[in-house]
Design a protein around this nucleic acid. Structure first.
Lengths: 194, 194
DNA sequence: AGGGTAACAGACTTATAAGTCTGTTTACCA
DNA sequence: TGGTAAACAGACTTATAAGTCTGTTACCCT
């Protein structure tokens, strides 16, 4: 059952939800229809179960855990995003930011699934806002900064750069992006962004 | 034939390429299979024809033409992006940045279509770089700015904010985004970003 | 050991997709 | 006005999708 979810998420990520059939997933696992529909009611319910477990976990591990409870928010965020971009860069077959891809795919088509995806995004957002607010009280960040705005900006730019990096062979894309973000962060940092 | 392309682009935009059937398009137009396959060889060739005409034209009209040949690059870009975000915001049924959506959808699935989409993105990119370079010689922008990096950053953030704005009801998202971008631009402007 | 249930196999149904093909309409021009 | 070709109609084929259903295996507990 866990293997089905794992393979399902991989294939959905690679080929998209609508372009991946249950048979594709089962073929990759040498399983039968019976096995699948014993564990899951439908393709939709299957995807939702993946969202709430594997997808959420992945976003948490990759983007939330590395910044949780850390000091020096701006540098921490920079480092976290850079790590993720490096992994994507080194992965020959990268398909972009998985959460962003699904949001794009389900937008306007499946409100229920969209709400689950939006929830995950919100958790990330809230965590970023939290660490930034703490950074203010800890004297890392200028108090006149609007954390919500900054977080929207960070998330937007990260989603975008992941989309762009996918097909572009430009090896400086990651470096340039981080440089720009760092430059921007400097304007709101009370200490020094390294 | 032009109506077929127009309706095709609309439906592909709304529902995605793989999730839109030829029959869907023909039903919307009260046309038959014969009409479609008289004009187009296949669904793929149909989409490519749309990319090279309507899609390219849309990106050009919305994002390139408004900045072409203008003075004061940073403010011009800000205004252009803000306009597009306003239109998206006021459009009750917005489905995100159409070019970005297709790039996400075709990534890793159809290299040929991807290359056409990438071409459109490149045209936009080149135009942005050009106007920024001109802005340097005209004394609008600090010379130590790397135009390519800045352009990647602008495009990334725009693609991302469009994705996020789609399902979020937050009405300040656009305003905040533009504010952040303006703030960032101030650090590289030799005059005053209004 | 054997009974019972969880876990799975795989043929089957129904719907919908892309693309084909034959026949019909429409428009235009001599 | 009649003939010709462009433009279109729509039934048909083939493939593939999601989901169903009946039968079979594997395992666990007493």
């Amino acid at each position: 059952m866990n293997r089905i979810q794992t393979t399902g998420m991989e294939l959905f990520y690679q080929n998209g939800y609508y372009n991946t059939s249950i048979d594709d997933i089962l073929k990759a696992l040498s399983l039968s229809k019976g096995a699948f529909y014993y564990h899951f009611q439908s393709k939709e319910e299957f995807f939702i179960s993946i969202s709430q477990t594997l997808l959420f976990r992945k976003v948490y591990i990759d983007l939330i855990a590395p910044i949780e409870g850390k000091e020096d928010p701006l540098n921490t965020i920079l480092e976290c995003l850079d790590n993720n971009l490096q992994i994507a860069e080194n992965n020959f077959l990268d398909y972009g930011f998985i959460l962003g891809n699904f949001i794009t795919e389900f937008n306007g088509k499946n409100p229920e699934i969209m709400s689950y995806l939006q929830d995950i995004l919100t958790v990330w957002e809230v965590n970023l806002v939290t660490i930034l607010q703490k950074g203010k009280t800890d004297g890392y960040i200028s108090r006149h900064i609007d954390s919500e705005s900054l977080v929207s900006f960070i998330i937007s730019s990260y989603m975008g750069i992941r989309t762009i990096m996918v097909e572009s062979k430009n090896k400086r894309l990651r470096y340039n992006y981080i440089q720009q973000l760092r430059q921007y962060f400097k304007t709101m940092d009370l200490r020094t962004v390294v």
